[in-house]
């Protein structure tokens, strides 16, 4: 069935080819190029030099890795905060709001169509001196508000804001995957509401929670606009370092090495989590 001559006999394989070609040329090849560049001597622009580990050594001797830690730390915090913020909402969308759920879901979707930097800029105008919040506080209570913009907290705030839908929707799917009869059965067997939640609802909705967390973490680790717009360069996330290396500093190999570090963290996470899921079951279950 899968001899060389009949490799394309399976219609699924034929259908997969176009997008596979795109991803091999536009995703795998660039990433391999980045890996290759990361072993080139600093400030070179070709792949034909003697490989070296100089870039990686520099990252750890120059404290550049601090930006990686910032990114990982902020992303982890974002995931935790979003999990707490979104769970009640996701629960409500599945179990409480009934026929209003569709409309509410649509409302939560709308921000996704607005470019993230526009929305973040909205927060700048909200928090800036003379902006919506300080202006209101001053006009109503005569209170002067301390600076919130351009702090690490503002960056975190922006990340929580931008990635909210990416936690909310997988979580909603996860909770919707728990059949109602499961909850009733647990209740009928004597479980209190809290026990139903802990023993049945939470473990059965973990796939949604995991995918949501993974998605938000990965996106947040790669966040760049939040620090630029809300952080005012006070925090340097790893993405910013990579960008500097690739653009102003013209040090591709260093930028590539930083990118490889980030890719390692992300791919280890993604691959371990994705390995656990059968996508047919999650997506096909209707």
């Amino acid at each position: 069935m899968s001899g060389d001559s009949s490799f394309l006999a399976q219609p699924g394989r034929r259908a997969a080819i176009p997008i596979m070609v795109l991803l091999l040329l536009g995703f795998v090849a660039p990433l391999l190029a980045v890996v290759g560049f990361s072993f080139m001597p600093p400030r070179t622009f070709g792949l034909w030099h003697e490989p070296s580990l100089e870039n990686y050594e520099r990252i750890f001797s120059d404290n550049t890795y601090v930006s990686l830690l910032w990114s990982l730390g902020l992303a982890s915090l974002t995931v935790v905060l979003l999990a707490l913020i979104c769970y009640p909402v996701a629960y409500g969308l599945v179990r409480v709001f009934g026929r209003w759920s569709t409309a509410l879901t649509l409302l939560f979707t709308i921000p996704l169509i607005v470019s993230e930097n526009i929305r973040l800029y909205g927060w700048v105008l909200f928090f800036i001196k003379g902006g919506v919040l300080p202006g209101t506080l001053k006009a109503l209570f005569g209170v002067e508000m301390g600076d919130f913009l351009f702090t690490p907290a503002a960056v975190l705030f922006g990340m929580v804001y931008v990635y909210l839908p990416f936690m909310l929707f997988p979580m909603t799917l996860g909770i919707a995957m728990v059949p109602n009869q499961m909850r009733e059965a647990a209740r009928d067997l004597g479980a209190s509401r809290w026990q139903v939640f802990r023993e049945v609802e939470l473990p059965l909705s973990t796939p949604g929670l995991m995918i949501g967390s993974l998605l938000t973490f990965v996106l947040a680790v790669g966040a760049i606009a939040e620090a630029k717009v809300l952080g005012g360069q006070r925090i340097i996330p790893i993405t910013h370092d990579i960008e500097i290396a690739f653009t102003y500093a013209q040090n591709w190999p260093l930028g590539a090495a930083l990118a490889v570090l980030l890719m390692l963290v992300v791919s280890v996470l993604v691959l371990t989590v994705l390995k656990r899921f059968d996508l047919d079951q999650i997506l096909g279950k209707r």
Binding site: P30, V218, L219, V270, L274
Partner: peptide, 24 residues
């Protein structure tokens, strides 16, 4: 395998992808 491969670009930081493509 294909299903998981398709997901990888979605689960990948876009800014890094942008920079990798710039280099490429």
């Amino acid at each position: 395998l294909y299903q998981k491969f398709i997901l990888l670009p979605i689960f990948f930081p876009q800014s890094v992808l942008g920079l990798a493509l710039l280099l490429w």
